[in-house]
Amino acid sequence: MRGDLHIHSTASDGSLSPRQIVKFAKSRGVDTIAISDHNSIDGIAEASEAGKEYGVSVIPAVELSTRFNDESIHILGYFRNKKFNSTDFQQILKLVRTHRVHKLRKVLLGFRQHQTFNKYLSSSEGIHLLRAFGAAVVLAHPVRISDKNLLSLLSMPFDGIEAKYCRSNDYYTNFFINVAFKRFSFYTGGSDFHINRVCDHKHCLIGEPYLNSAELRKFVKSSGALILGSNIII
């Protein structure tokens, strides 16, 4: 089995529809994917239905935009239940997309008391927000994070990190896998797919890199992530 747990669709800034992504993943020998659009879950239902047709397991996810010390930090959430379909979560994501953070914090008071007044959603807020809606929380592409902030972020209460990442190399992949073994419950991997072109120098095609069967089983067992679409047992 092969899994790619970081894929973007037309529900955010990707070039393929969720259905096209499932079909493309199948053609590339990838049978487990996570649709993880930026601040959106709108592609999950379509991907799940397509997964049933093409025999692809779909893990519902989101990539949340946050800030830490003036650096853009992305946080991946892999959902353990269907709380992500709630009206509250949809409204929260809309506020994130439209940068209405002050209004967002008023909504968040119902889930957790926050004391930050920055105009951006903080990484700490992002972690607790995703947890409140039943997600296992992962630090996205740590290889792209500045050295000045990385150590502090790795000390935050993430469940896992994205150790296998597009455009990384063997040294950093192995480094972050070792970090995951020491500090977290699991690691993930993904292409950060956006567009079906080999000339995309920032991202990769689906399945580059991928999680193998053992890594997928570890992820599902440790994260408790929900599996939609195909009835394939991971």
Rank of each mutant, 00 (worst) to 15 (best):
R2K: 15
L5T: 01
L5D: 00
H6R: 11
H6Q: 12
I7Y: 05
H8S: 03
H8M: 04
A11F: 06
A11W: 02
S12H: 02
S12Y: 03
I21K: 08
V22C: 08
F24S: 14
A25L: 12
A25P: 07
R28Y: 06
G29D: 04
V30K: 01
I35P: 03
D37F: 05
H38V: 04
S40R: 12
A47G: 10
A47N: 05
G55F: 13
G55R: 12
P60D: 07
A61R: 03
V62C: 09
R67Y: 10
F68V: 04
F68G: 02
F68E: 01
F68A: 05
F68N: 02
D70H: 14
D70S: 14
E71Y: 13
I73H: 08
L76C: 12
L76Y: 12
Y78H: 09
F79A: 08
R80Q: 14
N81T: 10
K82P: 00
K83P: 00
K83T: 11
F84M: 03
S86V: 10
T87K: 13
D88A: 12
Q91K: 15
I92W: 07
L93K: 06
L95V: 09
R97G: 00
H99P: 00
V101S: 05
H102P: 00
K106P: 00
K106E: 13
V107K: 15
V107W: 07
L108T: 06
L108C: 07
L108W: 10
T116A: 15
F117Q: 15
L121I: 10
L121M: 11
S122A: 13
S122D: 12
S123F: 10
E125C: 02
L129H: 06
L130G: 01
F133Y: 15
G134R: 11
A135K: 10
A136S: 15
L139I: 09
A140W: 13
H141L: 06
R144P: 03
R144V: 01
I145N: 14
D147Q: 13
K148R: 15
K148F: 14
N149Q: 11
S152Y: 13
L153N: 06
L153V: 11
L154N: 07
L154A: 02
I161C: 02
E162M: 09
E162D: 10
K164V: 10
Y165H: 14
Y171L: 15
T173D: 09
T173M: 09
I177F: 04
I177R: 11
F181G: 01
F184H: 07
F184N: 06
G189C: 08
R197I: 09
V198P: 00
K202T: 15
H203Y: 15
C204Y: 00
C204R: 02
Y210H: 08
N212M: 00
L216F: 07
V220H: 06
K221V: 11
K221H: 13
G229F: 07
I233G: 02
